[in-house]
Write a protein that binds this DNA or RNA. Structure first.
Length: 440
RNA sequence: CGGGGCAUAGCGCAGUCUGGUAGCGCGUCUGGUUUGGGACCAGAAGGUCGCAGGUUCGAAUCCUGCUGCCCCGACCA
């Protein structure tokens, strides 16, 4: 993409309302536009990051055996009356009426709807286990939205729902998601730590929050230092291996880890002092087992091997892609701007023409731009008629992993300079070598 | 929902106390000189001062009501 033809409204100064660093940087980098309290438009650069996150989430959901569908944002109130949550959910739920005065709502979650879909088609234990998920916008009318997309009212959520014949099966489904989450966050460039969690209004009795550590995190967390170096399961993990998966989960729940609301000072004292990590954290995922909480009232039942109908055991599993955009920035930035992990970066390479209009620079850039593109490398080519300093500042701000600087000084030697955004290291090399390095 | 604050050009702000018809920086546009870490000169465009009433000869400024947004707290992916 040529920057001169792109839509990247960067700001030199952050709007006053933005307080935390990810919100400020998202606004400054032209990723995000606030439309109302807690409601945002994703601008092109922000959308690219969001899509990359979604892709990784999808791949790992798929790997674990979950199947994607797509449910609507608007739901009928009747469904929620069936589960009893229409009255229980409170003002967080945005309630609306259609032209026929029917009660509708903008879904804050989809347990009821997925249960309705499930019960309409699934009748036999032979069709289990089943895990269905979607990635869809949710609306929760938070009393106080804040921190940009970190706590918005409208937000994108991946929510998966598992269906099993019994608790043991549900436990395995839970473990699959547990492992999928470990892999997902690792692939997003984050160190996530599963922490025992309260189950909240969703209900149930087995639940973990996946927390990433960030100095600007919203909650206080306590965990054993060993979590920071624990090995994340590889892509070859066998999700059908019940005992193997349980082993991974056991390992990842073997040490102390708790958010402040679940903190147990007595147990914390048992952690060796040099192993105690007390920090701030951001919740990026949450998984629940809730048994028959929805299946019983909503009559989602299957016939078991003995012919008797039993309500299924369910679980739900959430990840917030929009929040993750901010969480990744919180975990990865410096004074100059965002430092994207390569897997989620909106572009891999920023190609900076340091002297637009100079025939040698224009030619070298044009060639690199074309060749990188031909190799499938995502390049943002800064071909604006601007000072080098401004281009450096923009590239640093938007956090593209590699900057290729093409200027008269280097070209005189037949070289371009490649800078890694993450550590600031720079290396002079021929355009051919740069092409080779960057298309790996 | 309790407490606090803010609303003036795309962004950051001054002007409000003490009423006289709106200004600065950045950005934008034109021309020129520039070009390896946010250039310089000259010129220009851009604002119903959040909205509605009121007081006054006159309101960004004073009064009343409303709306929006932000921060702290309680609650939450």
């Amino acid at each position: 993409m040529r920057l001169s033809r792109y839509f990247l409204p960067i700001l030199r100064e952050a709007p006053r309302e933005a307080e935390i660093v990810s919100h400020r940087l998202m606004l400054r980098a032209g990723m995000l536009r606030q439309e109302a309290a807690g409601i945002y438009a994703f601008l092109p650069l922000g959308l690219r990051v969001l899509r990359k996150i979604e892709t990784i989430v999808r791949e790992e959901q798929g790997r674990s055996g979950a199947i994607e569908l797509l449910m609507p944002t608007i739901q009928s109130a009747d469904l929620w009356r069936e589960s009893g949550r229409y009255d229980a959910y409170g003002k967080e739920m945005l309630r609306i009426k259609d032209r026929h005065e029917r009660d509708m709502l903008y879904g804050p979650t989809n347990e009821e709807m997925i249960t309705e879909i499930f019960r309409a088609y699934v009748r036999s234990y032979k069709d289990l286990p089943l895990n269905l998920y979607h990635i869809q916008w949710k609306f929760r009318d938070e009393v106080r939205p804040r921190f940009g997309v970190m706590r918005g009212r409208e937000f994108l959520m991946k929510d998966a729902y598992s269906f099993d014949l019994d608790e043991a099966g549900a436990r395995h489904s839970y473990n699959k998601m547990f492992v999928a989450y470990l892999r997902t966050f690792a692939r997003l460039g984050l160190k996530s730590i599963p922490m025992r969690a309260e189950t909240g209004p969703i209900g149930g009795n087995l639940s973990h929050e996946f927390i990433i550590l960030a100095s600007t995190g919203e909650s206080e967390v306590f965990c054993h230092k060993d979590y920071l170096d624990m090995a994340v399961p590889g892509a070859d993990v066998n999700f059908d291996d019940v005992a193997g998966l349980q082993g991974i989960v056991d390992q990842w729940t073997s040490q102390y880890a708790a958010t402040s609301d679940m903190h147990d000072p007595a147990a914390w004292e048992l952690v060796p002092a040099d192993k105690r990590v007390s920090a701030r954290g951001i919740e990026v995922g949450h998984i629940f087992y809730f048994g028959t909480k929805y299946s019983a009232p909503m009559k989602a039942v299957v016939a078991g091997p003995d012919g008797k109908e039993v309500p299924i055991h369910g679980g739900s599993y959430g990840i917030g892609p929009t929040r993750l955009v901010a969480a990744i920035i919180e975990a990865s930035h410096d004074d100059a701007g965002i430092v994207w992990p390569q897997q989620v970066a909106p572009y891999k390479v920023a190609l900076l023409n340091l002297k637009q209009g100079d025939s040698a620079c224009d030619a070298a850039c044009g060639e690199l731009y074309r060749d990188l593109g031909a190799k499938g490398v995502e390049v943002l080519y800064d071909d604006r008629d601007d000072r080098p300093g401004a281009k450096f500042a923009t590239a640093d701000l938007i956090g593209i992993p590699y900057q290729v600087m093409v200027g008269p000084r280097g070209l005189a030697e037949g070289k371009v300079e490649v800078k890694k955004r993450a550590d600031g290291s720079k290396e002079l090399m021929s355009p051919a070598a740069a092409l080779d390095l960057l298309s790996k």
